[in-house]
Simulated assay, not measured.
Amino acid sequence: MVSTHVLLADKGVLTTIPIGSFTTEARAEIASVDIAYQRWGEFRGSNVLLIEHALTGDSDVATWWCDLVGPGKALDTDSWCVIATNALGGCNGSTGPSSDLDGKPYGSRFPAVSIRDQVEAEKRFLDVLGITEVHAVIGGSMGGARTLEWTLLYPEMLQAACVIAVSARASAWQIGIQSAQISAIERDPLWQGGDYYDGEYPAEGLAAARRIAHLTYRGEMEIDERFGTSAQAGENPLGPYRKLDQRFAVNSYLDYQGAKLTQRFDAGSYVTLTESLNRHDIGRGRGGLNKALASSEVPTMVVGVDTDILYPYHQQEHISRNLGNLLAIAKLSSPVGHDAFLVEGRQMDRILRNFIQQSLPNATESVDGVEYRLGDEYII
């Protein structure tokens, strides 16, 4: 019997929960850890949907997935208790490099963390709250990596999982492109080895990292259709000399994306969380990828994007072919690329409604009234 006597934060209110000292997978010690979270909907014991955010996301899932979370929406808060945490190492309430240690920010003293560490910390957070069962874990990108690890670390706690736009391990290409982002930050003179918190912020390095990353988040077709070779209004990138203030329109767009991130995200957390993605490998210590996937007992839906550059669709196909308990594989069709799971609200609504339906006892799969055999691919 699952207890319903769990005291949760008020709906939508960012709240931190101390989980005590924490030892990372690599045996580093974090003396005291807080995990921040938000929740929507009433807790009824076995109705928790645990949502995992992407790299620069946070616990405010009702904002970044606003089309999908709320009364009557795909993640219906009239029926479900939606809980989202901020990952260990983040900068939106949970303990990370910018958090206080002995009166000063951790900075370079904050250890590297893995995806497994993030899940272990989240499990400890649920233990403290007294939540012993989660109906489903749902996450995309870095959140999808966390979701996969949940299915292997604590399968007894889950009824189902939805893994979106991620691979079973970091590929060499992903490690390379992510390490280039880390390098952009570390090469900013203001980085100071991660101990910049008492001085100037390494905004240029973080903005450069974001410009690199954003090109992997969006589709090549979308970027070209939007900008092509157009010049930014009032600027001339075809002059006799190259000048930083004479840009193509796409460069202006990327500059904007970089600057926007520096206003809301910590460079230390960006490095920490990106490194956790470099370490993502569900096969480590489990006999390899396919053996690890085959061992999964949790009914799992896999979702990919047909134009994803960062996590190409063949990586979700690989997961689906080897997963021990596949519900279905769904494909988002979009020019947007990797970010489609965040911006294609209509398609994600239909996918998540079907996922919730399938996760219930004796469920059958249906898309727009058409039934599919469980395990089949369908395209929205």
Rank of each mutant, 00 (worst) to 15 (best):
R264F: 13
E120C: 13
N354S: 13
D195F: 02
K331E: 09
A62M: 01
C66A: 08
D306P: 04
G45D: 04
E29G: 07
Q118G: 07
G144Q: 02
S183V: 15
R109S: 14
V166F: 11
T63S: 11
G324D: 09
Q174F: 13
S269D: 03
P299R: 02
E275W: 00
G228S: 02
E133L: 00
I185T: 15
Y313M: 10
A249N: 11
F110D: 10
D188M: 15
R373P: 07
A180I: 08
D58I: 14
N362T: 08
Q257E: 11
P18N: 11
R346N: 10
K73M: 03
E222V: 00
H214L: 02
S334M: 01
D281Q: 00
V303C: 05
D100V: 15
Y311C: 14
S98E: 14
I83H: 00
R247W: 15
Q118N: 09
L342Y: 09
C81E: 10
A208Q: 06
A294H: 10
D281I: 11
T85I: 09
I164F: 07
H53T: 14
C66K: 13
N236L: 12
A172Y: 02
A112V: 15
Y311L: 13
S230Y: 09
P299M: 00
N290R: 10
P71L: 00
F43A: 09
Y217N: 03
D60P: 04
L261K: 07
Y253A: 08
E220N: 01
G228R: 05
N236C: 06
T23F: 05
A84E: 06
A330R: 04
V113Y: 05
R321V: 04
D224Y: 04
W173L: 14
R346E: 11
L75E: 05
A207W: 02
Y378I: 10
S252T: 15
S359M: 08
L244M: 15
S79P: 00
S98L: 13
A112P: 06
L126Y: 08
Q174E: 10
N278F: 03
I175Q: 13
T307N: 04
E156Y: 14
S230E: 14
T364V: 14
E222Y: 10
D255N: 07
R124V: 11
I379R: 11
A207M: 09
F227S: 00
Y201I: 12
E344G: 14
L8F: 06
G337H: 04
I329H: 04
L244S: 15
V305Q: 09
G375T: 12
V163K: 09
V343E: 05
I83V: 10
Y197H: 03
V370G: 02
L68E: 05
R279M: 06
F341A: 07
I17V: 02
P361W: 12
G89F: 06
A184Q: 01
S171Y: 01
P202W: 04
L126W: 02
R44Q: 08
A74R: 03
S141L: 00
D117Y: 15
G57I: 11
V134S: 04
D339N: 08
A294C: 02
S296F: 04
F125A: 06
R116Q: 13
W80I: 00
T229C: 13
